[in-house]
Write a protein that binds this DNA or RNA. Structure first.
Length: 892
RNA sequence: GGGAGCGUAGCUCAGCGGUAGAGCACUCCGUUCACAUCGGAGUGGUCACAGGUUCGAUCCCUGUCGCUCCCA
């Protein structure tokens, strides 16, 4: 017997453990079936489940469960990402708290040991949380980006790309994070609006007593200036091109050059050029042969003492300037401005708001800094990745994201992949005594290569840097399947089917997987990239810890159950729109689960039991034939919607069927049968109810796996678990005559209810009903459904008459009039108003149709079926109008 | 500055060339033998604005206004 109320918490953990134990999540149950493969976007090992994960994994699980039921051999490959910077920061913070130590005093080896220990004890949280959501990944295949196998893949890829010239070392400006002390990629830089100033500085023009005024947001970089640029077409300033400036505070002579970069409209039209500390200036410097003078150290402090580049050409640098050495960049900025002011070289200061680059992890201002780093020639790798999408080998859903993808890929910059961290894949590069680099998969191979090169054994030093985390993530679709080994799984499951992810990591991850997959597997990593929305809070704000508007999915699961959360996310996952999550929605779908549970209880109480031999095609009772057809239509809607990744439509279709068709009408309509005396009808109805319940559980399972599995097991002896059952397919269900009859019956009941409410008939009062001018068909239907109609419309009797009794409310039902004698109850004025209002509505509709039918253009050009439809509808409305007028007349 | 998207019921959102929909909220009624986490009935919309295409536009096109996001 089903419990009176159902409590998700009781069954979710139990069912999940059983599924996992019995191996339902593993592929290989159907070795001959077509494989279906999804690789999970690996969450950070430091992470905990947030709403984005919940949405992302709910969608994947719906697809995976759906395809598993449809007979595909499903692999959902799970795993986590080592998340270089994030993890290193977590452990460093821990060290700081625990014993006030830092990684540098520990040393690299000890620190890494500590990180691994942390990973072992705390790194699994996210996997446990995904289980709570119901994610049916094959946990036996769980991978970690720093696993031995995945690390081997990383080495192989790095070495091969290096040998192919697609990975190289280069000295250029990088985005340097002065807090984390590492280079980061363009994508890890976020632009933030900063309120600052525009400082106007006077630079003396050599050989004159004049100045050229430059405007800058970063006065402290002036120590590294190696030129001043003006636009060659700038009539006011172009005469200065070719002259020299004596750089204040330093004494260095620097040229005034002509370059288009200097916008005549901005600032003064003249701009100071610091090639070592600004990306634009770097390019200007290259074009004009200007020196690159670095004046900052890795912490963002002034570095001028013993700085040969700085001192070269600087004549008698004043002590005051040299005293800036070692100052933080922001402190130095203040001092330099003061010094300019003291010397009368500060022209003016304007408040200025501008975008400044910040590290996405550290949130400090990023310093463009001149260093040697490793780069990937992304432009080269992007070419086939662009072509694959152009040719449709991989398609985005929704399709408009392809544009974003193309846009970025066609303008892609070299990818800086080295990071000055410890946690990550150490770069397999070794340096000889003279700096010659040997890139090999192992130290032994590097030593051998060095010996060949030098003709003698030498000592090598390994590159200290590690790789960008996204480098290993880029290999995820094949590295997790065993590559570089030629495993069975790799052969069977690559190319994968669909990648489900948010648009925020199209560049970080999707693009790079495309590049690496095509280069190493010669085939794109997935057929389809499904891009889902961002989950925002109720007000549309991005959820963030600092705003405090984060909704914790685990709390929602605790409160409403995983099924409710999953269904909510699916129902709101319309394409191309962000999800604004409101708790009330989750509550509503929790109620949906309860509704289903109660429907099952009702069925059980009425002796409904699963019958494996039941065939819905054999049903004779009209209401049963009708619900079977409705079931089949619902299956088609759900299936089609899922095939097109329209999760909200799929969820909507099953929701509406369960609640508004099955519970509201079918179960209500069969009550008289179930308590009646027609044993054959009763038996058939019970069997049909059991069958429909089963179909509901099957169709709903991908969305609400827990409650459906629980009901499946509690409502019959089953040969198979629901998770492993076959998705239904129907042939020949649907009976137009049954549909018409039930539609009429439902309309009858609804109309009577509506009038009762409007006439303020007490809900408990049973009233009589007279059918006027009913055709023989209508009489037959009314006889057939008398009990059901009386029960649901709260009528005491249904009789046939030629005339409506006086003092009755009247309802037009096709050719007949349903009259409700309400002597003493009816308010004639109200009834008159009601009918008049209806008449108005009809008249308006007719007028609209007439407007069309009297339009020669419409008659000539509208498609015939639309024309026909309009005529039919007009005929219907006209007939109806006559009935209502008749009813109105009878009121006197 | 370049790109993408969104303005539909009080709120959150579907829909999309031919009768404008859901959930929540609200109002009224209800202890009808599955369910008050429920049932029944309602209120509520110049589909942002202005043009255009079309026999017909909430839907397609153009522009305007407002908002969001991505990239510089």
């Amino acid at each position: 017997m089903l419990e009176k109320t159902f409590t998700p918490a009781d069954m979710e953990a139990r069912l999940y453990a059983q599924w996992e134990e019995r191996g339902f999540f593993k592929p290989g149950h159907k070795p001959r079936a077509e494989p279906f493969t999804i690789v999970i976007p690996p969450p950070n090992v430091t992470g905990s489940l947030h709403m984005g994960h919940a949405l992302n994994n709910t969608i994947q699980d719906i697809l995976v469960r759906f395809e598993r039921m449809r007979g595909r051999d499903v692999l959902w490959q799970p795993g986590t990402d080592h998340a270089g910077i994030a993890t290193q920061m977590v452990v460093e913070r821990l060290l700081q708290k625990e014993n006030q130590t830092d990684r540098r005093s520990m040393g690299r080896e000890a620190f890494l040991k500590r990180v691994w220990a942390w990973k072992e004890e705390s790194g699994g949280a996210i996997s446990r949380q995904l289980r709570r959501l119901g994610a049916s990944c094959d946990w036996s295949r769980e991978r970690f980006t720093m696993d031995e196998g995945l690390s081997r893949a990383v080495l192989k890829v790095f070495v091969q790309l290096h040998k192919e010239g697609l990975i190289y070392k280069d000295k250029r400006l990088v985005n340097w994070d002065p807090k984390l002390l590492t280079a980061i990629s363009d994508l890890e830089v976020v632009q933030k609006e900063v309120k600052g100033n525009l400082w106007y500085l006077r630079y003396p023009i050599e050989g004159t007593d004049q100045f050229i005024v430059v405007a800058t947001t970063r006065p402290e970089t002036m120590l590294g200036d190696s030129g001043v640029a003006v636009h060659p077409g700038n009539d006011k300033l172009k005469h200065l091109i070719g002259r020299q400036v004596r750089l204040p505070l330093v004494g260095r002579l620097i040229p005034i050059v002509g370059d288009d970069y200097a916008d005549p409209e901005k600032g003064t039209g003249a701009v100071k050029i610091t090639p070592a500390h600004d990306f634009n200036d770097f390019d200007v410097g290259k074009r004009n042969g200007l020196r690159q003078i670095n004046v900052l150290d890795q912490f963002g402090k002034i570095l001028i003492e013993g700085n040969a580049d700085f001192l070269e050409g600087a004549a008698d640098v004043p002590a005051g300037t040299m005293a800036l050495h070692g100052l933080d960049r922001f402190e130095a900025r203040k001092r330099i401005v003061e010094m300019f002011e003291a010397q009368g070289l500060l022209d003016k200061i304007e408040p200025h708001t501008h975008q400044a680059p910040h590290g996405d992890r550290s949130d400090v201002v990023i310093e463009p800094w001149l260093t040697e780093q490793w780069y990937v020639n992304a432009a080269e790798l992007a070419r086939p990745a662009i072509a694959a999408v152009e040719k449709g080998e991989t398609g985005f859903v929704p399709k408009n994201w392809e544009k974003t993808y193309f846009e970025w890929m066609r303008n892609i910059q070299p990818w800086c992949i080295s990071r000055q961290l410890w946690w990550g894949h150490q770069i397999p590069a070794w340096y000889g005594p003279d700096g010659t680099v040997f890139v090999e998969e192992t130290e032994a191979l590097a030593l051998a290569a060095a010996e060949r090169h030098f003709g003698a054994r030498v000592t090598l030093t390994r590159d200290e840097d590690v790789l960008d985390t996204w480098f290993s993530s880029a290999l995820w679709p094949f590295s997790t399947l065993g590559w570089p080994e030629e495993t069975q799984e790799l052969k069977r499951h690559y190319k994968t089917d669909v990648l489900v992810t948010g648009f925020d990591i199209i560049f970080f991850w999707v693009a790079r997987m495309m590049m690496m997959g095509l280069h190493f597997m010669h085939e794109a990593p997935f057929h389809t990239v499904y891009i889902h929305a961002l989950v925002r809070d109720e007000k549309g704000q991005k959820m963030s810890k600092s705003k405090g508007n984060v909704i914790d999915p685990l709390e929602l699961i605790d409160a409403y159950g995983a099924d409710a959360l999953r269904f909510t996310l699916a129902a709101m996952a319309a394409q191309g729109r962000d999800i604004k999550l409101a708790k009330a929605r989750v509550e509503g779908y929790r109620n949906f689960g309860t509704k289903l549970w109660n429907a099952a209880r009702f069925a059980e109480m009425n002796g409904v039991a699963h019958d494996p031999n039941y065939d819905p095609l054999a049903a004779r009772v009209t209401v049963n034939r009708w619900i079977s057809g409705e079931t089949a239509r619902t299956e088609a809607k759900v299936r089609q919607a899922l095939e097109e990744y329209r999760f909200n439509e799929a969820a909507g279709a099953i929701y509406q069927f369960v609640w508004n068709v099955f519970c509201d009408w079918y179960l209500e309509l069969i009550k008289p049968i179930l308590t009646g005396t027609d044993e054959a009808a009763k038996a058939e109805t019970r069997a049909t109810t059991a069958w429909v319940m089963d179909q509901i559980l099957l169709l709903l399972h991908p969305f609400m796996p827990f409650v459906t599995e629980e009901l499946w097991q509690q409502t019959g002896r089953r040969s198979q678990w629901l998770i492993a059952s076959d998705w239904p397919s129907y042939k020949g269900l649907g009976d137009a005559a049954a549909d018409a009859e039930m539609e009429w019956t439902i309309r009858f009941i609804s109309e009577v209810r509506s009038v009762r409410a409007e006439m303020n008939v007490p809900a408990g009062a049973k009233i009589g009903c007279v059918l006027v001018s009913a055709s023989s068909g209508t009489r037959r239907r009314a006889d057939a459904w008398e009990n059901e109609i009386m029960r649901l419309a709260r009528l005491s009797s249904i009789v046939f008459e030629e005339q409506a009794p006086k003092a009755s409310a009247q309802i037009v039902l096709d050719e007949a009039i349903v009259a409700l004698p309400l002597e003493g109850v009816i308010d004639f004025a109200a009834e008159k108003t009601r009918l008049s209002k209806e008449l108005e509505n009809i008249a308006r509709d007719i007028a609209a149709i007439d407007g069309r039918l009297n339009n020669s253009g419409f008659l000539a050009k509208a498609p015939p079926e639309v024309l026909e439809e309009s005529r039919e509808r007009k005929a219907e409305l006209t007939a109806r109008k006559a009935r209502v007028e008749e009813a109105l007349a009878r009121l006197g």
